[in-house]
Amino acid sequence: MKSYFQDTKNKGGVVEDVIYPTRTKGVAYVIFKEKKVAENVIRKKEHCLTRKVGLMHLTVSHFNEKVFSSVRAILDLSIFGSQVILESLVMDLKKKIPTLCFSPLEYNGRISVQGSFLAIKRLKEFLLLKASSLLEKNKSFISDGEKRSRQSPRRSLRRSSNSVEPLRPSVPETARSGETLVLDTDIFLYLKKKSRVYESTLKKFHVLCQERVDGEITTICIKNAQDGSRPNNEKLVKEYIEKYSHALHSELRKETFVLEGKKNRAKNIKSACEQISSRYLQVLINFYKTHIDIIGSSSDTYLFKKEVMELMRQKVR
């Protein structure tokens, strides 16, 4: 592949490195010495790599440094019961967040949604607000019904069959007292472990955070630490952390080492990461049973991974 992209017939030039395999199946990263060469390669409409089995067609595009680009979720809208026409709700969601892709609504109320993490986050906030407003309406209806029942018990009995079906989901208590913030877990871990902004902001505004990590999503509940604290401190902290996390979302890149195969290989990868980590203080390393994630700037993660692979090759010799 390297020789192909260095060939001038293919609009190529000097290639500094080819990263393959990557965490995305079937994707390779080709790093050119000159930006102009990369642009020429992209302008060429067709790229075919000759293999023993025949020609392999390549799709070439710019590398997007915004790694946390797509999230897929399955929504169960049936929890809204009979209070909402689900088709209308889906139409509203499409209008409110046009960047999301929706699958057809299933008969059981389920629907698949795909889009950026930030778009999914907006979707969650919209649905929480919707659920909250329906709960308030339901409470109001029940309280009015209780008043009428005290005034006219018979009328209340006649109307009981038409009462509104109670909404099953409950909005978390933190949504009503304090502020709730939802972040990508990788962003949150980097924010907490590699940035002083998180802890310093909490101390500055005298707030406490309850953090709940649930896979790729982390929910942060922000509350005042002192009774005398200003009530808008919670909102200010939420806005500040949200703004900072958005900036990280655009700047950070994630690489993954998959711990498959021989035990020695996995052990060597872990050892190499630990050995190199002291030279990359702004790179976050998350160790898991099946893989290792490294998160940092585009240049740092690239150099970090390159050094790990070089150490691995040295140990194999």
Results as ranks from 00 to 15, higher is better:
F5S: 11
C48G: 10
V237M: 03
S143Q: 13
S271D: 08
K238W: 09
H246E: 14
S3D: 14
L208A: 10
Q314T: 12
R155T: 11
D144Y: 09
I111T: 05
K96E: 15
S298W: 07
L259D: 05
M312A: 02
H47A: 05
T180R: 13
D7C: 11
K25V: 13
I111N: 03
I97V: 08
V27Y: 10
S140F: 08
F68I: 11
E136K: 13
G215M: 01
Y244N: 04
F5P: 00
G13A: 10
K137S: 10
E239Q: 15
E234F: 04
S140G: 09
S140P: 00
R155H: 13
V27K: 08
N224Q: 07
T256N: 00
T290Y: 01
N224C: 09
G178D: 03
G115E: 06
K45Q: 15
K25M: 04
R176E: 11
E146Y: 04
Q114S: 06
K262Q: 05
L75W: 07
R72A: 09
R159D: 15
D144P: 01
K52E: 13
I120F: 04
I187E: 02
T256W: 07
I42Y: 05
I142N: 12
S156Y: 14
L303I: 01
K235W: 10
H206V: 05
G296F: 07
N138W: 09
R72L: 00
L189P: 02
L157K: 10
N138V: 00
F80V: 04
V258C: 08
I19P: 01
G145E: 09
L284I: 10
K193T: 14
L189F: 04
Y190K: 03
R154F: 14
V182L: 13
K262C: 05
T219W: 01
V90K: 08
Y29F: 11
P98E: 00
S271C: 07
Q275H: 12
K243M: 13
T301P: 02
N162F: 15
F126H: 10
E87G: 08
C221A: 13
K306F: 06
E179S: 15
S250E: 15
N40V: 02
E251V: 04
V213K: 14
N10W: 01
K130N: 01
F304G: 05
I79C: 15
V237F: 06
L259N: 05
V84H: 07
L202G: 10
G13K: 03
S69M: 02
T99V: 05
P21D: 07
E307M: 03
R154P: 00
K121E: 13
S163R: 14
S116R: 04
I222V: 14
G26Q: 03
Q114R: 11
S69P: 13
L58F: 06
I187W: 05
C209K: 03
R212T: 12
L189R: 15
N40F: 00
T8R: 11
G228N: 14
Y240G: 01
L181Q: 02
L129Q: 02
R155C: 00
D76G: 02
V30G: 09
V15T: 04
E239S: 15
